[in-house]
């Protein structure tokens, strides 16, 4: 009986670590969803593709001999720029046409990148070059790898950076103002187009960072890789309360941990079914998400 208790304890720790890793990825991607929604009320279904684009930029950078520490910022900037271009030539012209056209357009952009990627790069998964030594550490019966540590720490750093950016800089103030009331922000002399572009840039850069980290962690990238994390991140953003930045982080972590606990202790077959049931139950009791309160802090 004693060994069962310690088994349970070790297993639980393993599941929590795996959940935290996956959850950090969901959270990083969810941040972009939530920021873009916060500022222009657009559910950007193409967001998962910025994750994929970041992963591929990282892939080609590392293939060409760049060290990982440099490839990641390059991938972030790269997918940020792609997002800004997409916002400028696709979303901006239809911004005032209402939400539905924008939503459908976002779906179209998502499919465009998935299939253009398959055409240009090829559909088969590519092995991500291991540019850093991915060691596995063992503590008691808990296993974790260098890439897992890297994912959790870099997510944490990026999230703290975002917190600082939104709350303590002039740019952040302008973002919050634009989110709160775009017309009033314009009257105050804020160039809201610039702010929206910047929001897209930051959101996509975070997704790009997540893409590179995922490539490194699992060792594979392919043009369809953005679909599932994009969907899960959307769920995470809604779970935490869409438009609320800490909500995206919390939602991502809750979803990641819940999935791994279901797989570990219960039936793996029903992983997504159970994870999504949790979502539905939470939304039944708190329709605005975990952190959704009356006084919203949007961006």
């Amino acid at each position: 009986m004693d060994s069962h208790v310690s088994y349970f304890f070790w297993d639980l720790l393993n599941y929590l670590i795996n959940g935290l890793t996956q959850g950090s990825i969901y959270a990083l991607v969810a941040l972009g969803y939530t920021m873009v929604f916060g500022i222009i009320k657009l559910i950007n279904f193409a967001h998962g593709e910025f994750f994929m684009i970041g992963a591929f930029i990282g892939y080609y950078c590392i293939l060409s001999g760049m060290p990982f520490a440099l490839a990641m910022p390059v991938a972030m900037i790269g997918s940020g720029i792609v997002a800004v271009i997409i916002e400028r030539i696709v979303y901006r012209p239809i911004r005032h046409a209402g939400r539905i056209p924008a939503l459908i357009t976002a779906l179209g952009i998502s499919l465009f990148f998935q299939y253009a990627g398959q055409m240009i790069i090829g559909a088969d998964p590519k092995a991500f070059p291991s540019s850093i030594e991915n060691k596995t550490y063992q503590l008691g019966e808990v296993y974790f790898s260098t890439s897992q540590i890297l994912i959790v720490t870099s997510s944490l750093i990026l999230m703290l950076f975002l917190y600082w950016l939104v709350n303590f800089t002039k740019m952040g103030k302008a973002m919050r103002a634009t989110s709160y009331n775009m017309k009033a922000a314009e009257l105050m002399g804020i160039d809201t187009n610039k702010i929206i572009s910047f929001t897209f840039f930051v959101g996509a850069a975070f997704a790009g960072a997540a893409g590179v980290l995922v490539g490194l962690h699992y060792g594979t990238v392919d043009p369809m890789m953005g679909m599932i994390p994009g969907l899960k991140a959307f769920v995470a953003a809604v779970l935490g309360g869409i438009g609320i930045i800490p909500g995206a982080v919390l939602g991502g972590l809750v979803l990641g941990v819940a999935e791994n606990l279901v797989v570990g202790f219960w039936m793996a077959t029903y992983r997504d079914a159970i994870a999504f049931t949790i979502l539905i139950i939470i939304l039944l009791f708190k329709p605005s998400g975990l952190l959704g309160v009356n006084r919203r802090e949007k961006v």
Binding site: M224, N260, A268
Partner: peptide, 14 residues
């Protein structure tokens, strides 16, 4: 039903 995964999964650690 306990030991299954789905195509396109990437994380099998748990």
């Amino acid at each position: 039903n306990d030991t299954t995964y789905t195509q396109k999964d990437t994380d099998f650690r748990s």
